[in-house]
């Protein structure tokens, strides 16, 4: 199976409370925050690796995993990190962040998919900076491919995938024949969430994404990294969404500490009046 994983780097999500809206409201500054791969996209890479291996022999790839990102040269650090965990090659599409919206990324990815001809496009359900959740859906429509969003389980079943989607009130189980677009949710990296047809059903992965050992980090420097221009993939570069301004959130003042449960009950009843 050949899997294409589009990914995005984001400002460190564990310090998202340190982003600042500039005084003129024109920008959200992330200065001082480290770039990290979007967690959901990192899970998509892990999912792609699991789908192209026997879990007991993770060094041998049954198929190919190609990672792609849109951004300036420094994004290659993120791509190299993914190559070190096991992806085979990388593509960087030269672009500035403010030239892009989800729609444009989806249009460019459509062209790239036509060139690369993957069996599966796997990506995170959303990037945790813009918090939009749209690229997978738009891409599927542009390609005329079936899609499954918010996947928490994927099992290879012959030429198809069995996918469990996390939705309100439970899990929708779908059978999807390739080629297809699948976006992944948090629990896709649980120990028993993803099985290729090579991996035995009683095999358990470690929780979370795999780490790259030092030799793999060195080898990743030699793996292929292609650079494309955005104009090679998209002729219509107009944005469908614009942000003329930003606003900081309303702060929430810390309340008071109560000394015991009796005081808490008293406050809830007589001050907050919520009992």
């Amino acid at each position: 199976m050949k899997v294409l994983v589009p990914l995005k780097r984001v400002a460190d999500p564990d310090n998202a409370n340190k982003v600042k809206v500039t005084a003129d409201g024109k920008k959200v500054e992330t200065t001082g925050l480290e770039w990290k791969p979007n967690p959901f996209d990192e899970y998509a890479v892990e999912t792609a690796l699991r789908l192209t291996e026997d879990g007991t022999k993770p060094k041998t790839r049954a198929g190919e995993v190609v990672v792609v990102t849109f951004g300036p040269k420094e994004c290659e650090i993120t791509l190299r990190a993914m190559l070190a965990t096991g992806a085979d090659r990388a593509i960087r599409v030269e672009a500035e962040d403010d030239q892009l919206d989800g729609w444009l990324v989806a249009r460019a990815l459509k062209k790239l998919v036509e060139q690369e001809k993957p069996d599966l496009v796997l990506l995170g359900k959303q990037a945790v900076d813009g918090d939009t959740n749209q690229v997978g859906q738009i891409l599927a429509e542009l390609l005329g491919w079936p899609m499954a969003t918010s996947a928490a389980m994927i099992k290879e079943d012959g030429e198809a995938l069995l996918v469990g989607r996390e939705v309100d009130g439970g899990v929708i189980n779908l059978k999807v024949r390739l080629p297809a677009v699948v976006t992944v949710d948090l629990r896709i990296v649980a120990p028993a969430s993803v099985y290729s047809k090579l991996t035995k059903a009683d095999f358990k992965y470690n929780e979370g994404v795999r780490f790259a050992p030092l030799p793999a980090i060195m080898q990743a420097k030699k793996k292929p990294m292609a650079v494309l221009k955005l104009a090679d993939l998209a002729t219509d570069t107009a944005l469908r969404i614009q942000y003329p301004r930003f606003e900081p959130p309303k702060g929430r003042a810390a309340g008071k500490k109560v000394k015991d449960v009796a005081e808490l009950v008293d406050k809830l009843k007589n001050e907050a009046k919520v009992l």
Partner: peptide, 20 residues
């Protein structure tokens, strides 16, 4: 219409305009 939407886990809000 413009749309206010939370971004960065609610740590900034974008005031969005759609062009279509």
């Amino acid at each position: 219409l413009t749309y206010r939407r939370p971004m960065f886990a609610g740590n900034a809000y974008g005031i969005a305009k759609l062009t279509t």
